[in-house]
């Protein structure tokens, strides 16, 4: 029961945060392009493609997590996306590149704090994915 409640909390929290993150970026697409570019990992065409796709992906994931449809797949997708964010930020930070995180808005530099926060969110997403796959397996065994 406790795990189920925790799963609900993670689902709603992650869904809400993805919605906030996506909405902020969709509102300022050109500003988000600059945030992605500041990571100094991609050529201009890839920066534009990433910056124009990512916010919609976050919004879609946010809605799908809150709704809970096919949760095991979308929780896994959320964990993979957050894992990608954490790795990208860690690489950028370790290279000494000074850039904004661009996570939930603009003007927040990549720092141990942003890395710790995104790692915590990744832990939530991993838990949610593992929990939803376990629940599904249990339901299958029970013949539901």
């Amino acid at each position: 029961m406790a795990l189920r409640v925790l799963g609900w909390i993670c689902r709603l929290a992650l869904g809400g945060l993805f919605l906030v993150a996506g909405y902020t970026k969709v509102q300022n697409p050109f500003l988000f392009e600059m945030a992605v570019d500041a990571y100094q990992l991609l050529p201009p065409w890839a920066v534009v493609t990433t910056a124009r796709t990512l916010p919609w992906l976050e919004l879609a994931l946010g809605v799908l997590l809150i709704v809970g449809w096919k949760l095991r797949y979308f929780a896994t997708a959320a964990a993979l996306l957050l894992g990608f964010f954490v790795i990208t930020m860690a690489i950028t930070y370790s290279r000494g590149v000074e850039a904004n995180c661009g996570c939930f808005g603009f003007g927040e530099p990549i720092s141990p704090k942003t890395l710790a926060r995104d790692t915590l969110l990744l832990a939530f997403a991993v838990f949610l994915a593992a929990h939803s796959w376990t629940e599904r397996r249990r339901a299958r065994v029970a013949g539901v």
Binding site: N28, F30, L31, E33, M34, A35, D37, A38, Y39, Q40, P44, V47, V48, V97, E98, A99, N100, F106, G107, P109
Partner: peptide, 20 residues
């Protein structure tokens, strides 16, 4: 006013300026 930190390539900054 928007705050941006770090190096931004010219083609990307140009897109922002043209939009504004």
């Amino acid at each position: 006013t928007e705050k941006v930190a770090g190096v931004v390539q010219y083609p990307i900054l140009r897109r922002y300026l043209d939009d504004k």
